[in-house]
Write a protein that binds this DNA or RNA. Structure first.
Lengths: 110, 110
DNA sequence: GTAGATATATCATCACGCGAAATATCACGT
DNA sequence: ACGTGATATTTCGCGTGATGATATATCTAC
């Protein structure tokens, strides 16, 4: 749907936003992005996990393994204090970026 | 200023937009992006040229060498018919993409 | 005469999303 | 009992493309 390059850079912001609302596991985040965007935005599940691992290394999120009866083990991630700061910064960053690009490309002349 | 990943994917749209208004050469496009974004958005000049070459290979733009007295030779690029279509498509694509991301990340809670 | 802006070109490097494959459990239909 | 598909995580090689460094050349201004 969207150019692969366009999706890059929004991945972290997207994941951080998902985790701002609730503790979630990887697969859940993937499905959430897919359904909430009505199938228009779909990140590969492998990408999702690699970003999660990277963000955990960065100390933005922390995973917690949960084993429930009759369920495959899941790793639930939540934002750390640092992650919350990064989310805020990336959110503002995104808005400013979009503003500038929109300014530069002007209105579409359909 | 902005994450390098965020800039990826907006480069082509940006250049195509610049060339929609007038025939321009590479260095000029770079300066234009820099000044119009008040220095916030700055693409490497090397990146700019590599994107220009790629877009010319794709047939989206066409370069024309101009040699003026007392000036270094410049290559002026203009949009082709195909490039105009790509610009329109990428423009719509950008707007839709931004809409979806904004929907997913929600309003900032500053 | 040299420093800095203008202007283009090339190439190695690196980050990162992607595709593919492996592993494991549960639900459902037959 | 068996297969299929959804759920769930992991790993790794690949390809794309922005970046940084470097080279070259001309003009202006001090």
């Amino acid at each position: 749907m969207f150019s692969p390059e366009l999706k890059k850079g929004s991945m972290e912001l997207l994941i951080l936003s998902m985790l701002d609302q609730a503790e979630r596991h990887g697969y859940e985040i993937g499905k959430l992005i897919e359904t909430r965007s009505r199938g228009l935005l779909e990140f590969r599940i492998s990408t999702l996990y690699s970003v999660l691992y990277r963000m955990e290394d960065n100390g933005w999120i922390r995973g917690r393994w949960v084993e429930k009866e009759g369920q495959r083990s899941r790793c639930y991630y939540r934002l750390t204090a640092a992650g919350r700061k990064v989310l805020k910064a990336q959110h503002e960053n995104w808005r400013e970026f979009v503003g500038i690009i929109n300014e530069l490309i002007g209105p579409s002349h359909a």
